Simulated scan of single mutants.
Amino acid sequence: MSARNPGMELDLGWISKVQVNQPAVIRHAEQIQTRRTVKKDWQAAWLLRAVTCIDLTTLSGDDTPSNIHRLCYKATHPISEDLLRVMDMHDKGITTAAVCVYPARVADSIKALKAAGCNIPVASVATGFPAGQTPLQTKLDEIRIAVEDGAREIDIVISRTLVLTGQWEGLYEEIRQFRQACGDAHMKTILGTGELGSLTNVYKASMVAMMAGSDFIKTSTGKEAVNATLPVGLVMLRAIRDFYWKTGNKVGFKPAGGIRTAKDALTWLMLMKEELGDEWLKPELFRLGASSLLADIERQIYHHVTGRYAAYHNLAMA
């Protein structure tokens, strides 16, 4: 992971002045989808880059040690060895960036990754995921338990109520406490952007989260009605850029929820490259939260190598 974001004092003057021009943002986001696309070898290279930025995720009520084991195996062997060999990428150590699970499944994940001889981090959601409607002490305990079990990254959810009612000091203080509870684990702050009411609120919440010491800001839990959208991504990336210009601290970005196709992944990679440049296009500063995305990427790479599409059942499941 990249250097930690130490955060800064809450600057309410900065927050109060912000006003996002929603029609302009939406117009710009629409243009991104119609822009140039990458083809052939370039596309395959970009898709392999996307794989290395995936937080391979399972957040289901029916998660068991056996399907966690399968998820971890897929994280360590995300693309079939045969395909990588043809592309001369079989010895480049391609894995996903992390696996992401509930706190109760962290120990299972650590055990499975250790058995596979792989050192990719385990990320755990916490703080009353996905709604965040649990008491503060319970949220802090949940973070500590996940860290004690070996999680090296914690995906926390903010209290959306604090954003919707304009309680920026309260939001800052809550996230500072979460950051403290994370200890050495990197903290990704999920804003739940589909429930924040406006793009102006998305920018303000992003900025407060970074001021409070978030190492990443993340769009969604994947459980809201509206998850990662390009307008929201654009606003969050501009906030990351503004924060970097002001403090010199680089904060990562993670879109999550609804990112299912290779084409979706390429669009997000292009947005990152345009807004923040190549230095952000690595797992230390960019993650894709996804559960079914990897299957489509592997299918596209299969097509690149063989000239035909594989049926989904021909490729190992995530």
Rank of each mutant, 00 (worst) to 15 (best):
Q180S: 15
G197E: 02
T193W: 11
E153L: 11
T193N: 11
L162M: 03
D149Y: 05
E153R: 09
D155K: 08
G166L: 07
A209S: 15
C182R: 02
S206Q: 12
V202N: 04
T189K: 13
E148G: 10
T161S: 12
M207H: 08
Q180D: 15
L191N: 09
V163K: 00
A209G: 14
W168M: 07
W168D: 06
G192P: 12
H186W: 08
A181T: 08
T200N: 08
L164H: 04
A209I: 08
M210E: 07
R176N: 02
G194C: 11
A146W: 04
L162E: 03
I175S: 03
T189P: 10
E148A: 10
S206N: 10
R176S: 13
M207L: 15
R144L: 02
S206C: 09
G194H: 13
I145S: 12
W168C: 04
T161H: 12
E169L: 11
T200K: 04
D149A: 15
R152P: 13
A205K: 04
G183F: 04
V208P: 12
V163Q: 00
Q177T: 09
R176W: 01
G197M: 03
L191Q: 06
S206G: 13
L196G: 11
S159E: 01
S206I: 12
A151I: 02
I156R: 03
I154A: 04
K188F: 09
Y172A: 05
C182S: 09
V157R: 13
T200Q: 04
C182V: 03
F178L: 03
K188G: 12
L191T: 14
M207E: 12
I190L: 05
D149I: 06
A209L: 09
L199W: 14
Q177C: 07
G150M: 05
I158D: 04
I154M: 05
G150Y: 05
M207A: 14
R144G: 07
I158Y: 02
G166T: 13
I190W: 10
G166A: 08
E153N: 11
E174K: 01
L162H: 07
R152D: 14
A181E: 13
V147G: 05
H186Y: 10
Y203N: 04
C182W: 01
A151Y: 00
M207K: 06
L191Y: 07
G183Y: 00
Q177D: 15
W168E: 06
K188A: 11
A181H: 11
R152L: 14
T189Q: 07
I158V: 12
T200A: 05
G170Q: 08
G170D: 09
I154F: 01
V157Q: 13
D184Q: 02
K204Q: 15
A146P: 00
